[in-house]
Computed example of a mutant assay.
Amino acid sequence: MINKSHKILSFFLIICICSCEKIIPFNEEVTEPKIVVHSFFNSTDQWKVFITKSLTVTDNGKLDFLENASVVIKDEQNNIVEILEHDSLGKYKGNTTPQIGKSYRIEAEVLGYNSVYAQDYIPNEVTISSVDSSTSHLNNEKILELDVSINDPKEEENYYYLKVHVGLNTLDGNYQTKRLNVLVNNPIFENSEPNKWDNKGIFTDFLFNGENTTIKTAIKLPIVIDDFSYNINDLDYLEIRLQNLTKAKYLYNKSYDLYQNASGSPFAQPVQVYSNINGGFGIFAGSKRNDFRVL
């Protein structure tokens, strides 16, 4: 019989924030619980970090949020930027906001666990210079084609997400914002497939480093929200969002997408989700977003 400590364990951290769930899976040989850190940070929001513990192969039940952790943010010179305070359910909050181009280190300690640390930064903003739009048809469906021009920086690797968001007053009297699926049949997208629609386009600047380039995508028309259809003129805004990710965030998101795709198949190889937390599990990673309103 195979010893349990050598089995690959998949476990999940579920954090409910404002009715949203963040699920952090890891595949790893785990024989003792470790600290799990989750923090995606940017230059707009104050520090927010979630701390929990991993499960071992002998544990049963729900994961525990760690509410007695010491969570410290430091700068590149190892100076303390802020000591985060526990809010609730393993969430630690700060009063300061990360800065663009700055590198940060997180250190977390909990009595009875090995301490953990990680380091990442907020990349510079990469701007959308223009967006050209036109209506067309694809497979007998009406679409709005979007040609998104971006200014890619020279001499650095960049990792991108491209998303489309809309806001409008709905027919039931509420104001809603929604992220739309985008067409990712463009080979520049890493998640590209013929006639595929996804909630984001994923790409790097490998083919156009340091150049101005145009990313072609589209959205479906009319826009359907809660079974109601809306035309472009019904929208309050239509916004293209270009997110410049650090390599750590890119690798985490890429491996997590692979994990999700593999988890439903009994024939798929196990996927280990990327972690940059030394001594534990999780992710500490930055990004910077640029928004361009078409409407």
Rank of each mutant, 00 (worst) to 15 (best):
V116D: 05
V148D: 00
K249A: 12
L66Q: 01
K200N: 00
S130P: 07
R241W: 06
T214V: 12
D234G: 13
V126I: 07
R241K: 09
S43T: 04
E157P: 07
Q272P: 14
E109I: 10
N151Q: 12
S133Q: 13
I23S: 09
F41D: 01
I215F: 01
Y121D: 02
K163E: 04
G61Y: 06
T52Y: 04
V166F: 08
N95D: 13
K93N: 08
R179I: 02
N276S: 11
L207K: 09
Y92H: 10
S115E: 08
G94Q: 00
V30A: 07
N124S: 09
K163L: 09
I106K: 00
N158G: 14
K102S: 12
Y113V: 04
L144I: 01
S192K: 04
V110H: 02
T44K: 12
A218I: 02
E125M: 09
Q99G: 03
Q77T: 11
N231H: 14
I223F: 00
G61Q: 04
C20T: 10
K249D: 05
V116L: 10
G210T: 08
D120N: 15
V271F: 03
V110I: 15
E76C: 08
A285K: 03
Y121K: 08
I223K: 00
S129M: 12
I80L: 06
N158F: 08
I143G: 00
E157K: 07
A248L: 03
I17Q: 11
S88V: 10
A118M: 09
L168W: 08
N253R: 07
N191M: 05
T97A: 10
S129V: 15
R105C: 09
T31N: 12
E141L: 05
L221M: 04
S10M: 09
L251W: 11
T204W: 05
T217Y: 00
H137C: 09
I24W: 04
I15A: 10
Y92D: 03
T56G: 10
L295I: 07
I15R: 10
N139S: 11
P25V: 02
Y175N: 11
K22Y: 15
I106C: 13
L183V: 02
L207N: 06
P266F: 14
K200W: 00
K163G: 01
D172W: 13
I202P: 01
L9E: 07
I24A: 02
N244Q: 06
S70V: 14
I225Y: 08
F203W: 02
S130G: 13
Q269H: 10
Y237Q: 06
D205S: 10
L66F: 05
E156A: 05
F228Q: 05
N199C: 01
N140H: 09
I122G: 04
